[in-house]
């Protein structure tokens, strides 16, 4: 299946939340202006070719998942997220909002971070898909995964796989460059965390990108200890 290009397929930046809003906004606008279905493509206005159409019966699908070739049949309505979670046991990829607003279901499709809830399984025919499981198992963590643990870039852990996918993609495209906090913030702008772990995620990514350190946290612990001089509050 040929890859399509479009505003939400920007190869360098991946799908951002804002980009998604823009495309939804445009689609809603078009739908509001016309009673017919919006034209998908100038040439597709002719009657569909029924023979080649993907229908309710399962359709063959081949793609590469975490380095392993997959050959299976899926229904046209199955999202990539459902395929990964329900059929291929990739439960590290999470279902949270189911409409592309939170980034918890992010996977890399041909090195671009994508919300898998917003793609159909059949959209990845011929593509290479990487989930969090493909970044490294618990006994062979990647440098980024290790940095997440060291900086405590997770609390409940439900946004973590999406955060890792967004930031892996950032590290890949910025290979070797020094990053600023704002670069990491841009990269994870589409990943929602309810525990409020963002500052530690940024620390972790910077420590890998810029080599060690990278912590901008500012904590002072004033211990309860008798002082030699009589001080006081």
């Amino acid at each position: 299946m040929a890859k399509r290009d479009g505003p939400e397929h920007d190869e360098t930046r991946g799908l951002t939340r804002r980009g998604l809003f823009r495309s939804i906004g445009a689609a809603t606008l078009v739908a509001g202006c016309t009673k017919e279905d919006p034209p998908l493509h100038p040439e597709s206005r002719a009657v569909a070719d029924v023979d080649g159409a993907i229908g309710l019966t399962p359709t063959p699908l081949e793609f590469v998942l975490d380095g392993q070739p997959q050959k299976l049949e899926v229904e046209a309505r199955t999202t990539l997220l459902d395929l990964l979670r329900l059929d291929l046991d990739r439960t590290g990829t999470k279902l949270v909002c189911d409409r592309g607003a939170c980034g918890a279901c992010m996977v890399m499709v041909d090195d671009v971070p994508r919300n898998s809830c917003m793609m159909l399984a059949l959209d990845v025919a011929g593509a290479t898909v990487t989930t969090v499981a493909g970044l490294g198992g618990s006994s062979q963590l990647s440098a980024l995964q290790q940095a997440f643990v060291q900086h405590d870039a997770l609390q409940c852990g439900f946004c973590t796989s999406g955060m890792l996918i967004s930031s892996s993609a950032l590290l890949r495209r910025s290979a070797g460059q020094t990053l600023e906090r704002a670069d990491v913030e841009d990269a994870i702008a589409g990943n929602l965390c309810r525990c409020g772990t963002y500052p530690h995620v940024v620390d972790a990514v910077l420590s890998v990108a810029n080599g060690g350190g990278g912590s901008a946290h500012n904590v002072v612990l004033l211990r309860a200890k008798p002082s030699t001089k009589s001080g006081g509050a």
Partner: peptide, 8 residues
């Protein structure tokens, strides 16, 4: 942490 960052 390792279980959470590996999706396991």
């Amino acid at each position: 942490g390792p279980l959470k960052v590996s999706g396991e």
